[in-house]
Design a protein around this nucleic acid. Structure first.
Lengths: 195, 195
DNA sequence: GCCTCGTGTGATTATATGCTCACATAATAT
DNA sequence: ATATTATGTGAGCATATAATCACACGAGGC
């Protein structure tokens, strides 16, 4: 029996939870499944998290900070708007491709109908994500890289919808080709739409 | 105690199930919840359906035929492509607004990770839906209503992503304004993107 | 009217799941 | 070295859920 600090164990447990979601879905995110994936007893999960609610919260924080913060960093960079947009798009796709659990968790019913506090925090993050992308698009319009008459917010929502729908299609297995190939086609076409 | 024919009861049960999904999510789609919503005993559900699998199958058929068949009918009509596209968009939004359970069920994990047969049938329907919309867009391009260089399939996916994302945002409560208002803005902007 | 067969139900079972508890043991301070 | 504290675990509890069964009953054919 090996003992580690709570800090380490918490990270391990969150990682294990994310793996479970990626491989078997949010529906299968049971304490037993997490414990098995993390290689420890169920009771030990409760030694580090008060319950499922706190675990969900930690998972949301991890996903939120590591994933959505990414877009903000890119947006704050010094490149041209269109370049930023493309980078945001493909890094988002990459995250989805590597870790299907991320979009599944973020938009899961378990979170939004079962854990209101977590839902609230995720809602805020999604909102700021939309604003970030909207800002980049608005800048692109101002600088003449994009069509002059498009609405930044609605265009941002369209782009995020495109990404989210790709994630969904991947989850349900409708994507026959690779997600990277598919996303490249989608981006090429989106460029024609916005510029 | 009132007795009705199996045919009637089956419809009632499917309706009750859809109501449960709409109000409490797929997660809450338990036999007990359906029984309560339909006003009958749990055991009576099994009198008409062999189990949850058959029930899911019936629900998928109902949604598929009544909802997705709609787009095909519109597409087969005699109007101009752009008009058709707009009609498809707003009737899809209307369905979502009136019955949030529809998109929830169609893209639910419970279906795609728990009921493979149902998933397969839904996958087929989604595919033909994408093709239908793609066809309308292709016609629009040919007739000069839409930009000449856009890709029909990718543009169709973008449009459906926009719809699906709206449904998701409605489900998780990110939509502050009404879904009809939101969808009008999105469509206005989408028109600018494609024409 | 009444007989039969399909329709309806309360009680029950088996299993899964979130969670607790008494107890064991490794790490750490003294 | 020993005591203390935090970490780890098997066993068990309460509840929820899918499914079954014996039995009750109502509608349509005669």
């Amino acid at each position: 029996m090996i003992k580690k600090s709570t800090r380490i164990r918490k990270e391990e447990i969150v990682q294990a939870a994310l793996e479970v979601v990626s491989s078997k879905g949010v529906r299968a995110l049971t304490i037993a499944a997490i414990a098995e994936s993390a290689g420890m007893s169920e009771a030990n999960i409760y030694r580090h998290f008060s319950g499922k609610d706190e675990l969900y919260s930690a998972l949301a924080d991890f996903i939120g900070s590591s994933v959505m913060g990414n877009a903000a960093t890119i947006a704050a960079g010094g490149r041209k708007p269109l370049e930023k947009l493309e980078t945001i798009f493909f890094s988002h796709i990459k995250i989805i491709a590597e870790n299907p659990g991320v979009p599944r968790f973020i938009f899961s019913e378990d979170v939004f109908l079962g854990h209101p506090d977590v839902a609230k925090s995720l809602t805020l993050r999604i909102g700021s994500y939309v604003e970030t992308v909207s800002g980049v698009i608005a800048a692109g319009v101002r600088e003449g890289e994009l069509k002059p008459d498009i609405l930044p917010r609605e265009t941002a929502l369209t782009m995020l919808g495109m990404i989210q729908f790709t994630a969904l299609r991947q989850t349900i297995g409708v994507l026959n080709s690779d997600i990277t190939v598919e996303s490249r086609k989608l981006w090429t076409n989106f460029l024609k739409l916005i510029s």
